[in-house]
Design a protein around this nucleic acid. Structure first.
Lengths: 233, 233
DNA sequence: TAAATAGTGTCTCTAAGACATTATGTG
DNA sequence: CACATAATGTCTTAGAGACACTATTTA
């Protein structure tokens, strides 16, 4: 059919003719709670891997943007909404899903959990914050592997000074609070003076109004500067 | 159906019931030729975007690993084989392919072009090395955008000292030759002494046997140390 | 005034960048 | 010996990490 126009070609194109993989998104939502780094998992209510823990996620709709699908699934399965996701990478081993061929695109976010009320639904019962130090030995699909790589990615981004930490802090926070979060996620103690020096030199912080008081010297509050229109990478 | 076993569930699972996106891979193969950074493009022989330039790539088979699909498509469309690909990221805007919903996973490689004989096929005529400084203004799909991001990725990896440069050099090379490749890809002149210091301090090079001779002082040859079992990131 | 946390400066070491001369081949 | 490219070292600057004391509030 050398002569037909692109318009005609597209009219005749039948995607159904081709056997295709399915596409899912999986989301790693991390937070810091009770002094530990946690990740949001769901206990699967349906086959396959029923009753096992999995990352929230699901199939991408036929006309849905990848990130929109991730947001929708996250909202449906866990009630977490309005957060900022970073695409991490795609996973596509042929045998990773026993139903059919599934390629998944993994996303990472780091948020604070305070104002989130997790829900349960028929097909995704028991959305739970799980300490990453206590992950179940077996998880659904290859989610254990995805998590392992996602954790490395999160720590790398945090250490490098990306904007991934923006969402985990409240609007205003003290430098000690920020340092505490870093120490928990990176799993190491940091020097107070060096930490402050580096944070200031990154130029991401601005002084906020007010001080945090307590049975001690009041602490200056800070907030993140929004990098105006900075690309999300 | 709360009572059925996972085995029964999987027997009854029909992937065809669900409307699904398609999945492709697209490959950015870069090389340095004639003093310029080139990328391997194909002129499309079929709709959509017939006669426009595109990245080599195509649909992922139903039981095929993503990277295997990338290798296969690259081989079929350009005759480039046996190279090492790095997954970059997934692109999935709903309107990026006029045929149907297509999500693509992009790969990057940097190789040398000397021993490659490019082929042409019916559905991918005219595989050509194109200088990245002379990319066509309009390219098929969102390949122009993918290339733009892929170039950033390539340069970042190179500058950071990843193993992405391994394949672009011959088995043995002089430091001046290596520096020349870096300068072309990064688009900037570098200081000879500083370049050598940094390359040695990265610990990726080992002295090779022999010297390169010419109408000048002979130059020591080097080759890359294979990082034994280093993970591909 | 005791308890708790905030806030601060210097030294050392390493890496990056600027910079020019000598060395060793070939024709 | 002219030409071409190889090879090499020092200084300066910036950032990372080690390290300890003073300041300010409340109870």
């Amino acid at each position: 059919m050398p002569g037909i126009s692109e318009r005609e070609f597209l009219k005749e194109y039948k995607a159904e003719k081709y056997e295709r993989p399915s596409v899912t998104v999986d989301i790693m939502v991390f937070t810091v709670k009770e002094g530990k780094l946690h990740v949001l998992l769901i206990k699967r209510g349906t086959h396959p891997f029923r009753d096992m823990f999995a990352l929230p996620g699901g199939f991408v709709g036929p006309h849905e943007d990848l990130e929109a699908a991730a947001m929708r699934e996250l909202s449906e399965e866990t009630n977490v909404k309005g957060i900022h996701l970073k695409q991490f990478r795609a996973f596509g081993k042929p045998e990773r899903d026993p139903r059919t061929r599934v390629i998944t695109v993994a996303y990472v976010a780091l948020i604070r959990s305070e104002h989130i009320r997790l829900i349960s639904r028929a097909d995704a019962a028991d959305a739970v914050w799980t300490p990453v130090s206590e992950l179940p030995e077996k998880m659904a699909f290859d989610h254990r592997e995805i998590l392992s790589q996602g954790l490395d990615y999160l720590r790398e981004k945090l250490e490098y000074g990306s904007d991934i930490a923006f969402q985990v802090m409240p609007e205003a926070f003290t430098l000690s609070e920020l340092q505490h979060i870093y120490e928990i996620i990176l799993g190491k103690k940091m020097d107070k003076r060096n930490f402050r020096k580096r944070m200031f030199s990154l130029g991401l912080l601005k002084k906020a109004k007010g001080k945090k008081t307590g049975v001690h010297r009041p602490a200056q509050l800070f907030s993140f500067k929004r990098k105006a229109g900075a690309p999300i990478r």
